[in-house]
């Protein structure tokens, strides 16, 4: 029998669904992605301020290539166009910010296509990927175009931009034992991947992400604390006396990676304990690579390695249920 209890001539249409019947409307995936974009505004602004049109060019190429790749690949899979969830834009921006300003256009374009295609779509699209897409793209070009992405690739004395005439702080230290003042690392007046140079700017956007609970605070906290502890031990052991624990913290991609790359929810664990393990693991791997490997920096490989461990961490770190032992 249809509901006829109302006196109106037009009957209401009644439907059924399983409980719950009400939903919080505030937070959706596009809103979360929009929040990441908002958090990236300071980093993008700073990149353009320091690297001028190099940054504009690099970021535009990466974002446009990511959007294009997303459109083409989702079409090939006969899936609805997913540009509206903004995730490809986020991937493009983070990828662009993690590349050198001086990398040629095809490096950015190829890394973007790899990031979306091999990093995300082959796994089944957003939510299904194991590895951080931007880092997959970056790792690919780092190996495919080793010369363009290695220490020397960051330098372009002809550019007329101060920062680009120097080596990046981490490689300068690794190669010649030269140090830079901590204040340069803090404000970002050094060479480096275009979004990573200023610890302050990354912290600003990162705190916003944590405040909005888009990024889990446990991950950057785990990374930074671990790097501080291992850096302090290395300091005490006088391994690299000129390069202090504070250089380790403020230098390289650490803040950018801790707040924007490692916190990608898809590729990090879901539980609080898991997030701590994940953060501590990244911090330890970063320091292992920085202190003992041939690479000056280790954030990208550390994140990718811990991404691979995430499914395992999820199974180890099952929380104790209410009333459980």
């Amino acid at each position: 029998m249809s509901p006829q209890a109302n006196s109106n001539d037009q009957n209401p249409v009644i439907n059924v669904a399983p409980s719950p019947h009400v939903f919080s409307m505030g937070m959706t995936i596009p809103v979360m992605m929009r929040d990441v974009l908002i958090a990236l505004v300071p980093a993008v602004g700073m990149a353009v301020y320091f690297f001028h049109w190099y940054a504009v060019k690099q970021l535009s190429i990466c974002v446009l290539a990511c959007l294009g790749a997303e459109a083409v690949f989702t079409r090939m899979r006969n899936r609805p166009l997913s540009l509206g969830d903004l995730s490809a834009t986020v991937t493009g921006l983070i990828l662009g910010l993690s590349l050198p300003a001086t990398a040629p256009w095809y490096v950015g374009a190829i890394s973007a296509v790899v990031a979306i295609g091999i990093g995300k779509i082959v796994f089944g699209g957003l939510g299904m990927n194991i590895f951080n897409p931007a880092m997959v793209g970056r790792a690919f070009v780092m190996i495919a175009f080793a010369g363009k992405m290695a220490a020397s690739g960051y330098i372009d004395p002809a550019s007329g931009i101060d920062a680009l005439s120097q080596a990046t702080p981490l490689s300068a230290f690794k190669q010649f034992g030269a140090t830079v003042p901590l204040s340069s690392l803090f404000w970002g007046t050094t060479n480096g991947s275009i979004g990573e140079t200023s610890a302050l700017i990354c912290l600003l956007g990162g705190l916003y992400l944590c405040f909005r609970r888009i990024a889990a605070w446990q991950i950057p906290a785990g990374i930074l604390v671990t790097v501080a502890v291992i850096g302090a031990v290395a300091n005490l052991a006088d391994l690299h006396s000129q390069w202090t624990v504070f250089h380790h913290l403020l230098g390289g991609a650490l803040f950018f990676g801790a707040f924007f790359i490692a916190t990608d929810p898809v590729t990090s664990p879901v539980t609080s304990a898991g997030k701590w393990i994940f953060g501590i693991g990244i911090g330890a791997l970063v320091m292992l690579l920085r202190l003992f490997s041939g690479y000056p920096e280790g954030v990208m490989f550390a994140v990718l390695l811990m991404n691979a461990l995430t499914p395992l961490i999820n199974r180890w770190a099952i929380p104790r249920p209410f009333g459980g032992v």
Binding site: H21, V22, M32, L126, G127, P265
Partner: peptide, 17 residues
């Protein structure tokens, strides 16, 4: 009152946890 958001894939944000 029963309006809900569009269904998408889980991005493991952990809000349910």
């Amino acid at each position: 009152e029963i309006r809900r958001i569009d269904q998408r894939a889980c991005i493991r944000c952990g809000r349910c946890v």
